[in-house]
Design a protein around this nucleic acid. Structure first.
Lengths: 193, 193
DNA sequence: ACTTTATTGGAGGAGAGTCTCCAAAACGAT
DNA sequence: ATCGTTTTGGAGACTCTCCTCCAATAAAGT
C-alpha cells in the first residue's frame, strides 16, 4: 500500500543514544542522527516532529527501559531489606549491560531539553516519575522510614548511590570493575542500617 | 599608562558561572557572557583566547575553589574518621553557600569542552586531580582500606555520596533541606563502618 | 497498468554563535 | 601637550545547524 520504510524510529533512537553517550545531548542533532544511519535529514523529520521530540523520545525510551528493570527486581523479592539490595544490584547490572543507555541516564531530562517538550512527552515523564516515587515511598515505609530524612536516605541508598558508582567509571570511559555490584550492595545495606 | 579596564576576568567568569548554572555549559557563549555584563563581545575576546579558554577557566576556577575548601577541612582534623566526616560535611556546606558554583561542579570537565582545552589548562586540571587523588589515597590508608574496592568505597563516602545529596536538589531547583549536612555525615559514617 | 499513499532524498533559507578586525577612547609617563 | 599602551565598542564575514519544502520513488491494491 505504500513505500516500505528503510529507517524506523528505533533505529534512529539507537543512533541518538550512541551519539548522546559519546558527546552529550548537544551532539544529538537531526543531521548527526541522519548521518549516523546513512539517512537524509528529511527521513528523520518524517519520524520526529523536531529536535525536541527526538530528544524527548531518546530520553524517555531509555528511562522507561531502566525503570522497567528496577521494577522487575523490586517485585521479585518480598522481604523489604532483600528487595532494596536487589534493586541496588540491578541498577549497576543494568548499566553494565547497557553502557550507552546508562550514559544517557546520567544526564537529566533537563539536559535533553525538557523545557521544550510537548505536553504528551512531559506527561509521559511525569507518569514515570510518579510511579518511581510511589514505589520508593512504599519501600521506605516497609523499612520503617517515615520522616523526610529517612525517605531521602532510602532514595540515596537505592538510586543515587548505585548511579554514583556507575557515573565515575562511565565519565572516565573505563568499564565497570568486576566488584561494582558487590560494592554497591554492601554500601546500600550499610546505609539502610 | 593605559586605559583602565571596565570588565575584569573574574567579573566575566562570574557571569559565565551564572549562565552555566542556569542553562548548562551550552548556555555559556561568548556573546551571552558579554551581554550578561553589558560588555561588547570584543572585550570578552580580549580576556579569553576563545570559547574553549573561557569554558576552561570557568570550570577550573570553580573546581579549585571547591578543592581548596575540602583540603582545609581535611587538615583541620587529625583523626582519620573525624576528618572523613568533616570533609563530607564541608562538601554539602560549600554547595549550600555557593549554589551556582555547585551547579557547575555537578557537570564534568568534559561538558566544558575538555577536549578543546589548551595544554596549560589541561595541565592545571591534571594537577588538581592528582592532588585530590593523593589526599584520598592517604586518608583511605589511614582508615585501613588497602585494596581497590576499599579505596573506591572511601571515594564514594567522601565525594560521590555528598555530591549526590546536593545533585538531587540542585537539579530540581529546590534549596538544600536543613538536614542535608546531618544526613550526609551519618551516611558517610555508615559507609566507613 | 494505474492509482494511492508513505517515504525518501536532498536543496536552500533562517537564525545563532564564533571570531576577526579596526577605529575610537582613556589613561600614565615624559 | 603629546605619545604609547591598553581597552573598548561594535560591524561584518563565516560556519553550522535546524527546519521547511517538494519532487522523485517504491510498493500494494484494483
Amino acid at each position: 500500500m505504500a513505500r516500505p520504510p528503510r529507517f524506523d524510529a528505533d533505529q534512529l533512537l539507537d543512533a541518538a543514544v550512541r551519539l548522546a553517550a559519546a558527546g552529550g545531548p548537544a551532539a544529538v542533532t537531526m543531521s548527526a542522527v541522519a548521518q549516523a544511519v546513512g539517512a537524509p535529514s528529511g527521513s528523520v523529520y518524517h519520524r520526529f516532529a523536531g529536535r525536541p521530540a527526538l530528544l524527548a523520545e531518546t530520553w524517555l525510551r531509555t528511562v522507561e527501559r531502566f525503570q522497567e528493570g528496577c521494577h522487575a527486581a523490586l517485585v521479585r523479592e518480598s522481604e523489604p531489606r532483600r528487595a532494596a539490595r536487589a534493586v541496588a544490584r540491578q541498577v549497576v547490572g543494568w548499566c553494565r549491560a547497557h553502557p550507552e543507555e546508562a550514559a544517557v541516564l546520567l544526564y537529566g531530562a533537563d539536559d535533553f531539553g525538557l523545557a521544550d517538550w510537548s505536553e504528551e512527552h512531559t506527561r509521559r515523564a511525569d507518569l514515570g516519575n510518579k510511579r518511581v516515587f510511589a514505589s520508593l515511598k512504599a519501600l521506605a515505609e516497609s523499612l520503617g522510614a517515615t520522616d523526610e530524612p529517612g525517605r531521602a536516605r532510602v532514595t540515596l541508598a537505592l538510586v543515587d548511590l548505585p548511579l554514583s558508582v556507575v557515573r565515575r567509571h562511565l565519565r572516565a570511559g573505563t568499564p565497570l570493575p568486576p566488584y561494582a555490584e558487590d560494592l554497591t550492595e554492601e554500601c546500600t545495606a550499610a546505609l539502610l542500617g
